[in-house]
Design a protein around this nucleic acid. Structure first.
Lengths: 104, 104
DNA sequence: GATATATATGAACACGTGTTCATGCGAGTG
DNA sequence: CACTCGCATGAACACGTGTTCATATATATC
């Protein structure tokens, strides 16, 4: 299916989305590009923290950056990321009996 | 978009997929249900480790378990998980100039 | 029922990582 | 050109978490 390196690389993407604040940053950019300041105030996080996270998300191409005047706006780079998030949200809200058990 | 609790819950799902061994376990079950023993030998991991990971994945409904004879087989529970993985893989292999930079 | 096989669980350790505080940098503006 | 605003970076700490070793459970088979 996937070799070890690919798996590690893919896991790295998921790991980035696996931190609440970071995921919040990504999802907040789903509707419209947001400036760093906007993200900071909407999520009530320190500006430093947001910047640290944005750097990682940008590097992984989970967000893309673009300057508009003084500010830098972040947005979702492609449809795969968007659809992936959609699917995961659907999985989350999907009704489910907690058949955690072996018997299904 | 998503409230804080939903974001945390969703992040938890991604966090689980964000560990290479765990992601390997999930993706190895993409094609066909696999027994714990099969997973253990294919990924060359300790049986204990695999079981620990399976427990978490099962609880998060990223995998479902079913007994067949002596063994327990794990498989992907629904289409959302499968599609989500597909999208993420496509995002991974997507050609990209490393425009990590602000200028796009 | 006893033994073996397949999987699950618990405790403990080593390590990575999210966060903060302080500071640096660069583009726009007067 | 100096100044400021918006964002980025670096160091350091506190905490969570993946892994292993040892052991427990449960389902088949004899």
């Amino acid at each position: 299916m996937l070799n070890a390196d690919q798996t590690t690389e893919l896991a790295e993407l998921f790991r980035l989305l696996g931190e609440p604040n970071r995921l919040g940053i990504v999802t907040s950019c789903l509707d419209e590009p947001l400036s760093v300041g906007e993200i900071t105030s909407r999520l009530s996080l320190s500006q430093s923290l947001v910047s640290h996270h944005l750097r990682l998300l940008r590097a992984a191409r989970l967000l893309k950056a673009g300057r508009r005047g003084k500010q830098i706006f972040y947005s979702i780079p492609d449809c795969h990321v968007r659809e992936m998030l959609t699917n995961m949200i659907e999985h989350l809200i999907e009704p489910h009996e907690q058949d955690d058990d072996i018997n299904a």
